[in-house]
Amino acid sequence: MKKTALLAVILTGALLILSMENFPSWGDVQSPASLHLSRHFIEKSYEQTLTPNLVTAVLGDYRGFDTMLETVVVFTAALACFLVIRLPRDVCTPGLFYYRHTRTGLVVRKHDACELPGENPTFERVDSDWPPHDVVVVSTCRMVIPFIQLFGLYVVAHGHYSPGGGFQGGVIFAASYVLLAVSHDLRTLVHRLNERVTHLLSAAGVLLFFGVGLFGMAMGLNFLDYGALEGVLGMSLASGHSLGILLVEIGVGMTVTAALVIIFKLLSSRGTVTEGL
């Protein structure tokens, strides 16, 4: 098997190497790839969209439909994980469960918790395999998380002028929640962002994107034509496009944050979304 694999790989590689004979060399300014489409984008996109970051302009506006589908892919991934590994809520979860008495710090162990006690003030649930409550880690993360979230928002909002945008900002925002789960435990995260909220948020983000597109249709233009935003608040055509990109990026950010949190929660808790990591 390994030898066949090696042979196949070497053959494919050789064929690929042979087929790169007529490619332009590295950094060639006159190659077709940097002349036809990209020249137009570099020279025209600022006056058409008022967005200095060309990547954002092309991503959010010229290829906006691609970006919408890309958001849909993230949304799909979250749904797919939910469909494949989420365990039904009423199923008896086998294994060990630990409860700590809040006053004395005494820990009680329970097998096969079919009926989990609800919000009980005297006992709190402790993760069985990951009890990190370390004072250094917890307090540092508590201090750092707001800054990470602020930075995530900045990356979403400043995508017009610097590297950034909805996807990157959304990932940073989701990372702050992952850090919350790592430093505290998964239940803290679920308490802050429960499943319902994350699912609704992910759908709302795509719907915001979709809504911007439908607004274009409602104004008599094509789907996703941000030119429809012209005249809103007295804006010019180009700043309408700029606003459209911003709205779209916010939608993307919401979906990406929610979807990544969903995937993290499901994967780390093996589908129970109660404890894990």
Binding site: P132, D134, V136, V137, T140, C141, M143, V144, F147, S183
Partner: peptide, 17 residues
């Protein structure tokens, strides 16, 4: 300042683990 706070924490967390 950011690295000064986070890097030792990360090391600490790993040693702890």
């Amino acid at each position: 300042g950011f690295v000064l706070v986070t890097s030792p924490t990360a090391t600490h967390a790993m040693v702890d683990a």
